[in-house]
Nucleic acid binder design. Structure first.
Lengths: 218, 218
DNA sequence: GTCTATAGGCCGATAGAC
DNA sequence: GTCTATCGGCCTATAGAC
């Protein structure tokens, strides 16, 4: 457990840095060291996404990592802490994907870019995304409060672009908070139903960018 | 347990009948008899919606119904059967809400009516809806197959209206299955975030009907 | 149809050897 | 840092009295 603080620091640096490809590549958990801790963490992501946090046993996670049940506690102090690390990293990754995608000369371009990226991330990383979006209740109140800060930043990122579009007349939005939530919903719900055989994440992102833009354009 | 088949029959008749107000009123479970079985079922809905199926204990359900843990098994043979009855009833209710709402002279009117009703149902009945949409994995394969039939009917109901609008030129849809899923997503995701203090279900339905219509109109 | 009592098993987490 | 062994507790479900 001595290496926990170090791991949290390193992944925060990575996610908030410029190298976005790192969080969308298959090597998402490269920063988790040592390798045994990483095997436990990726096993937990898969198990939590498949069956949910409560239905997953520490024995299941350990066996996916090729270890005995007791070995888990050398790397993580509890099952909840494993969930928290996944949730915190996942939220930071999602926020960073949005921040990197917020580029374009018009609100319409920016919105399309945001929705395409956010949707594609939820498809590409649907296992992590499922944990991020559907296992919040299993976090301790303290850990939930920590990820809630990131969730508000994610919401603000979308709301800001919509507000900018309303201001310059390119968007017509009757209910700004409600429409923000609807745009977010569209992407987030992808984590519920997406499986790799249901199409290319990038193509899905493009479709959803178009649908979201049509929801608000004048 | 002798009364189980009778209960299933009676609620199917109710849900597929004409009295839609019955499934949107607070007395949704009136058909579940005797009262002790109904108390267990509504307690289970609340508990499953709050904490999830796996995190809910039979002791918790029984105590919400004011009974000892053992009394539950007089009315339901297992915890999963309780989930199945809730899920089956909820799916039938949602489908019936859609079928009753599919009225209007144009595809645009029909789509707006469908989305408004489906969205309002997910808000008004967000506890049942949460169980319906997020606890599918906890069902046995046989029970899952049974609700999957109803889920396909729900999806078809939306897809048909979109197809009708494309045919008569009132809608422009690049990807029919993808757009169908997006429209459904918008309403379904309401179950994830809705709480009563977040606004009136009917007003939310109206907003979402507008957003969905704009997604597809020419 | 409700209760008390409990079977039988699995869970999260720990102890201590190597 | 990994193992085997195990603790103490809680779980679903059942037995049997009333």
């Amino acid at each position: 457990m001595r290496c926990l603080a170090k791991r949290l620091l390193s992944f925060t640096r990575l996610v908030q840095g410029v190298n976005v490809s790192a969080v969308t590549s298959p090597l998402v958990w490269e920063h988790v060291q040592p390798a045994a801790a990483r095997r436990l963490l990726t096993g937990a992501v898969d198990a939590f996404a498949e069956r949910g946090y409560q239905a997953t046993t520490t024995r299941d996670i350990a066996s996916r990592a090729g270890m005995s049940p007791a070995a888990l506690y050398v790397h993580y102090p509890s099952k909840e802490r494993l969930l928290f690390e996944i949730s915190l990293y996942g939220h930071n990754a999602a926020l960073e994907v949005l921040r990197s995608a917020d580029a374009g000369s018009t609100p319409a371009d920016r919105l399309r870019s945001l929705v395409a990226a956010f949707t594609a991330w939820h498809a590409e990383h649907h296992t992590i995304a499922r944990v991020v979006q559907y296992e919040l209740v299993a976090l301790t109140p303290e850990h939930l409060a920590e990820v809630a800060v990131i969730r508000r930043a994610i919401s603000t990122q979308i709301e800001q672009v919509l507000a900018d579009g309303v201001r310059d007349g390119s968007f017509a939005v009757a209910d700004l908070p409600g429409t923000t939530l609807a745009v977010l919903s569209l992407s987030i719900d992808v984590a519920r139903w997406y499986t790799p055989h249901r199409g290319d994440p990038a193509a899905l992102g493009k479709l959803y960018a178009d649908l979201a833009h049509r929801m608000v354009q004048t």
